[in-house]
Design a binder for these strands. Structure first.
Lengths: 108, 108
DNA sequence: CCGTTATTTAACATTTACGTTAAATAACGA
DNA sequence: TCGTTATTTAACGTAAATGTTAAATAACGG
């Protein structure tokens, strides 16, 4: 089960957020490819990847000495589901507007 | 402008996540109402609210000595938008399934 | 087997986060 | 004005996060 606070904590760091975005855009990548993206030591990147992994945000696949990382769709879906669970709150005014425009143009 | 890493950091703490959820469910509440929710001192709650405020997640309204807090829909929308921006990645298989079921039942 | 490459783990320093209690502010009502 | 209530700020201790360099692992290709 995905713990939402863990997921959010993992994405709360700019380096990790960028990693996740790159992985979503390009798909699975080896750790080394991510190292060259950032002005940061290899070990630092490795630990960020570990945080992402432990949060369930990425998967790791070994091929020879390479470790391929990829974002786990379930994790992203969990965030999306959470926002959708509360959609009634945050989309309230937009919904009302939609309704008024689309269905119910009765008030002034 | 809402900084996504700040938003995620704010939601990365279980106490703050619960606060936000309660505020979304019940709407605007004074700080004191939130204090009684948690086994934690008033000052601790106050600081959590400050973190949420500085992240742009909640608004504060003063009425007498009370401070009413409410979740800012824009912040939630920002998260939702981010997930939607990457929907092509995480909803990929579901989309494909949807498409196949709905539109294009041509393959085996 | 050996040197090279890819990546992680260990050890360490520094900053940030978070909780506590005590004190400060500010509005309220007698 | 004074004591009470609501909330925040200050001061402090401790734990967690993050970066660094050095060392450990492990697969690769001669």
């Amino acid at each position: 089960m995905i713990k939402l606070t863990k997921t959010f904590a993992a994405l709360a760091d700019p380096t990790r957020l960028r990693m996740v975005e790159r992985l979503m855009g390009e798909g699975e990548l080896p750790a080394g490819d991510l190292v060259s993206d950032f002005e940061m030591s290899g070990p630092a990147i490795s630990r960020h990847l570990k945080v992402l992994r432990e949060a369930g945000l990425v998967s790791q696949r070994a091929v020879g000495t390479h470790r391929y990382y990829a974002v786990r769709p379930e994790a992203m879906r969990a965030i999306s589901n959470w926002t959708m669970d509360h959609r009634a709150f945050w989309a309230e005014s937009l919904d009302r507007l939609d309704s008024l425009l689309a269905l119910d143009p009765e008030e002034d």
